[in-house]
Design a protein around this nucleic acid. Structure first.
Lengths: 134, 134
DNA sequence: CCGGACTTAAACACTTTTCGTTAACTTTAC
DNA sequence: GTAAAGTTAACGAAAAGTGTTTAAGTCCGG
């Protein structure tokens, strides 16, 4: 009730994986089979996916889906894409080019490496022109 | 397995609430008691909290441990501590004094009573200077 | 103080998730 | 081809979460 979605077991496995251990090595450490480590890791990933989807629902509660910025897009091209899409639906975006990039980097830091988008970014917009990045 | 954390029932209640309906009105619409609407809404909020916490954990996975703020520390001393530690490892913190305190209060509300830290706070930092509080 | 909105707790039936096992399967690197 | 790494499927027991009801509670404006 107090913690997040992930169980202790799941976090344990993710931490070891982050360190580069194999499933077999982890299995030995936590005394179980590698098959079990695999399923624990898998359900951890599933829980993470569900957590993301849950927050996306929150955004969609008062925002509509605008567009998706594909992996590999140059960060500096993102504003033009968003302005274009927003214009199509007659919404004025609340941000100028610079502040939009800053907003994006604040909200999805790990999706921005240097000048490139390194994860697909789903863009939501409210009637007031506020943006959310999923 | 396919959806997010929220059940149909929970999303239903949240949507009606967003429209400004009272719990009683919703109870009538979905044919149950207002007490039940309350618990459904409550568990929806709990699920949202858990979703957020889950993603926070993810961030701590690729952030490194910076330092721990001990219980009893004056909130206004926290930024100086963090700036100092970040400097030691040559990372520029993304926040100024004020926004850092706000960020901390947002993320660990129950660990901040008035001007004092009332629970140990573990501080994580990414290479980009983003902070997470555990 | 009254009523409306909202919260809480206990209990219940029900469903889903989790961790685990075993055994067979696919993938990847040498 | 072999070996190590990873995945999958079927199954079971234990744990956790959900939707309900009922009944008692708080909080607040008029």
């Amino acid at each position: 009730m107090k913690d997040g979605l992930l169980t202790e077991r799941q976090m344990e496995v993710l931490r070891y994986r982050k360190q580069g251990l194999t499933q077999q090595q982890i299995a030995d450490i936590i005394s179980t089979s590698k098959a079990n480590v695999c399923t624990i890791e898998k359900s951890a990933m599933e829980n993470i996916r569900r957590a993301k989807e849950t927050l996306e629902f929150l955004y969609t509660l008062d925002a509509t889906h605008l567009c998706t910025i594909p992996t590999g897009t140059d960060l500096f091209n993102v504003p033009a894409i968003i302005f274009g899409e927003a214009e199509k639906i007659n919404v004025k975006v609340k941000y100028d080019t610079i502040s939009l990039i800053n907003r994006l980097r604040e909200s999805r830091a790990q999706a921005c490496k240097a000048r490139v988008v390194c994860e697909d970014i789903i863009v939501y917009i409210t009637d007031q022109g506020e943006l959310y990045f999923g």
